[in-house]
Amino acid sequence: MLNTWRQMRPRARREALEGYLGISPWLIGFLLFTLGPILASLYFSMTQWNIVETPKWIGFANYIKLLTDDPLFTKALQVTLTYVALAVPLRLVVGLGLSLLLNLKVRGMDVYRTIFYLPAVLSGVAVALMWIWIMHPDMGVVNNLLSLVGIQGPRWFWDPSTALISVVIMQLWYVGGSAVIYLAGLQNIPPHLYEAAEMDGANRWARFWSITLPLLTPTLFLQLVTNLIDAFQVFTSVYIITGGGPLRATWMYMLYLYEQAFQEFNMGYASAMAWILTIIIVVLSIIVFRTSDRWVYYEDTGEKAQ
């Protein structure tokens, strides 16, 4: 890089200096607030540290304890993986279905789009509180509507056997955020493909499977990765609504991490938890990326990349 610098003309050198100056806010933030903390976190995860005393080096002891001798960690992992396995595919399918509806060429669709996207901007404690009240077993609107059609509603967040499902259902309210992204993908599909297929006598179902779905796979792929990452990090809603209960039925990973870090001040232990979470997310992302060439369709090659 130094050689390039010497060979540069004064004008190019000036431009490069201005470039570095321009990106300096991000670069400083990256070095001090991202790269530095990542390295520090790796070190902390190998220590025993209660934030007051100096960190004590213990090697991989935190990791070994987490993976072999911590029932609360095993439970958190189990609950979170169950949640991810339920919520991510459901969000993908429902989001896609909603986007197909929104893509119908009917007047006034903008209004519906506005309505379905709205929940995506509402989050935080306020919405969590709203959901407690909506799914309240005795006074909530959900069980009220169910009783109108003669169904005795479950006890939702208040019952260990339905609490996690309730969180999954609640998260579906935000599906409009994904639907809008699929919609943009749908609208990018060139209409002449459908016209050609229609002339060949392909019905709606065949057109969906052979045109819409393959051409949407790049969008689906990106959404799958982001939804996966988000689902592992659920915090605010469960913290407010259930606090991990009842009977740890919604004991999500982030709840335990938060408890260890900011209530027990086991900073080393919590750092090791953060790294295990990162490794899980990275490994799953790699798996998705690796399999992507089997199911993601790339337009420019004209066929599934091999």
Binding site: F33, T34, G36, P37, I38, A40, S41, F44, I229, F232, Q233, M254, L257, A261, M267, A270, S271, M273, A274, W275, L277, T278, I281
Partner: peptide, 9 residues
């Protein structure tokens, strides 16, 4: 990068 990693440091 999950924010949990940088949160504690």
């Amino acid at each position: 990068i999950p924010y949990q990693v940088t949160m504690i440091p």
